[in-house]
Simulated scan of single mutants.
Amino acid sequence: WVPEFRALGAISPLNEFINGSNIIADSNYFSGIWDTNVLDSTVFGIPWYVDTRLLFYRKDILESIGHKNAPKTWDELYDVSVKIKNKFNDKNKYAFFIPTNEWAPFIIFGLQNGAGLLKNNDSYGNFSDRLFRESFDYLAKFYYEGLAPIDLQQVLNLYQAFAEGYFSLYITGPWNVSEMQKRLPAELQDKWMTAPLPSPDSNYPGYSLAGGASLVLNKKSPNKYYAWKWIEFLSTKKIQLEFYNLVSSLPAVKSVWKDSTFTKNKYMTAFYDQLQKTKPTPKIPEWEQIVFSKIQQYAELVAANKLSTIKALTLLDKDVNKILEKRRWMLSNK
């Protein structure tokens, strides 16, 4: 929401506050997360808690096909998926759950492949470009080869499906650590694990999304000094840890991750590693409209083999260009 609030002129630049602070500095934070708050070299928000996506997988099933660790490359991810499918030899069981109503995996794999999602100062779609098309083609083959389910009605209960081995690999976020611990049966609690995302090359791990929430200053506030002191208070190691213990939101301050709360949590290690490699999505107000209304629409059509990847992404660019029409007008009239 930082780009939206900035576009409305509702939030204050924070560079001067940061320069005078003994508590807040960019080096205290994960670089990809910090970058989500920077617009045109100006900082408008301070990360409060963080979020990203990584791989949840059935450790026991991967071990049964000869893989002691999660896949580290795209090639390994595909190879593991094929082996899982062959192991069960069941048309009603799959390897990799890639929900077509979730835009994140499609954007993540594009970012990993170096795709520029938008172009010309974020004023035109760039999804039909070769790099994004390669990543989209890569994911599409999981549907085409029966490695991923197409019909979302086949997964009415995510946790039951994961427990039953209906799928063994799933990209999701930190909230599902506690959900898996609550919902999976006791006999499976040592049979699943988290891992950073695979990479298109040997540079492991691959990038994921930079998410979370940030603290900002109201531009019209008459009490900016005290509001900034509150932001500093919420950014201390002690309060960041207390906040995590209360609501399980991952801390934004890196030093907090050295606490035994995280170092002794086997599921959290992967999140710390993944947070070292995140990228922000385009920092424009129209981004949510693009991904929620358009990415998912064309992902469903490609997964069902109703449109080729190139046709779908060409149409996606056309729709995105319409969404960004006002942005182009505003840029041209600055």
Rank of each mutant, 00 (worst) to 15 (best):
W1H: 12
P3N: 05
E4D: 07
F5H: 07
A7T: 08
G9Q: 05
A10F: 15
I11D: 02
I11V: 14
S12H: 10
L14A: 10
L14F: 09
G20C: 11
F30R: 01
F30K: 01
T36M: 12
T36G: 02
V38F: 03
V38Q: 02
V38A: 03
L39R: 03
V43A: 03
I46F: 03
W48I: 09
W48R: 06
Y49D: 11
K59T: 13
S64A: 15
S64R: 14
G66I: 08
H67I: 06
N69I: 07
N69K: 14
N69T: 14
P71K: 03
T73L: 05
D75E: 15
V80K: 04
I84R: 12
N89K: 09
F96A: 10
F96Q: 01
F97S: 07
N101E: 08
I108Q: 09
I108L: 14
G110N: 02
L111K: 13
L111H: 02
A115G: 11
N121A: 11
F127R: 08
D129W: 00
D129F: 00
R130M: 04
L131K: 10
K141A: 03
P149D: 06
Q153S: 14
Q153H: 13
N157L: 06
N157T: 02
N157G: 00
Y159G: 00
F162I: 11
E164P: 00
P174C: 05
N176V: 13
S178C: 01
S178F: 02
S178T: 10
K182S: 15
R183P: 00
P185V: 13
E187L: 14
E187Q: 13
E187A: 10
W192V: 05
P196H: 08
S199K: 04
N203V: 04
Y207K: 14
L209Y: 03
A210V: 06
A210S: 11
G211A: 09
G211N: 10
A213S: 11
S214T: 09
V216K: 02
N218P: 00
N218D: 11
K224Y: 00
K224G: 01
Y225G: 11
Y226H: 13
Y226F: 15
A227W: 07
A227M: 10
F233V: 14
I239E: 03
L241M: 09
Y244C: 07
V247T: 09
V247L: 10
A252R: 04
K254W: 11
V256W: 07
F262N: 02
T263S: 15
K266F: 06
K277A: 04
P280N: 04
E288Q: 06
S293R: 15
S293N: 15
K294V: 07
K294P: 01
I295Q: 04
Q296Y: 03
Y298Q: 04
A299S: 11
A303C: 10
A304N: 15
I310L: 13
K311M: 11
D319Q: 05
W329N: 05
N333H: 12
N333Y: 07
